[in-house]
Amino acid sequence: MSKLSSTPTPATVVPAQAPSRGEVGDSRRREQRPGWRPHDDTGHRNEVVLAGRVTAEPAVRELPSGTHLTTWRLSVTRPTADQRPNQPTDPITCVSFQSSIEEATRGWRIGDHVQVSGALRRRFWRSPNGSSSVIEVEAHHAHRVVAGGTSTGDVPAERAPDHQPR
């Protein structure tokens, strides 16, 4: 004969299913913009939008992995109220691993006004002096807004009559 246990057996837990998109009760709808993805429910976001002048022309280098890294630098003017006496602008390094951005930046020159959107990233690498790191903007989208001027700065480079391509 078997002896019955007086301890209760655990109940089976069935997880509740979240309503699918479009169903009543779906309160987690978010504004959808091109290039924007919700990361999680904690509200964390890493979005950067910059508009400034190119101060270091884009350079492409091949990493040991075979991936191409495009790097350039922008100078973004601070609002007048936030300017310091010796630092009216912020130099910001931008990078991209995307071939489409490598193509888009190919004709950029110093002085061009560009717009970049992406995210802040911290990259690490080993150097002869130990580990190093840098914080950069990893660009997801980039385009030139206005071509920079000639040496006088009066005429955009694309319309200058004696402009020689580099």
Rank of each mutant, 00 (worst) to 15 (best):
L4K: 15
P8Q: 11
T9M: 11
A11V: 09
V13F: 03
G22F: 02
E23R: 09
G25D: 01
D26S: 07
S27Q: 14
S27F: 15
R29D: 05
R33C: 10
P34R: 13
D41L: 15
G43Q: 03
G43I: 09
H44K: 10
R45H: 15
N46F: 06
N46T: 02
N46Y: 07
L50F: 05
A51W: 02
A51P: 04
G52I: 00
T55L: 01
E57I: 00
E57C: 07
A59D: 10
L63H: 04
L63F: 05
P64F: 03
T70V: 03
T71R: 12
W72L: 14
L74H: 00
L74W: 04
T77K: 05
R78F: 00
R78L: 08
A81I: 02
R84F: 00
P85S: 13
Q87W: 09
P91W: 09
I92D: 02
V95M: 10
S96F: 04
E102I: 12
A104L: 09
G107H: 14
W108K: 09
R109S: 14
R109N: 12
I110Q: 08
I110K: 13
H113D: 12
V114G: 03
Q115G: 11
Q115Y: 01
G118K: 02
G118N: 01
R123E: 00
R126D: 15
G130R: 00
S133N: 12
S133I: 12
V134H: 03
E136V: 13
E138V: 10
H140F: 14
H141G: 07
V145R: 08
V146P: 02
T150C: 11
V155S: 10
A157I: 04
E158P: 06
A160H: 15
P161L: 07
Q164D: 13
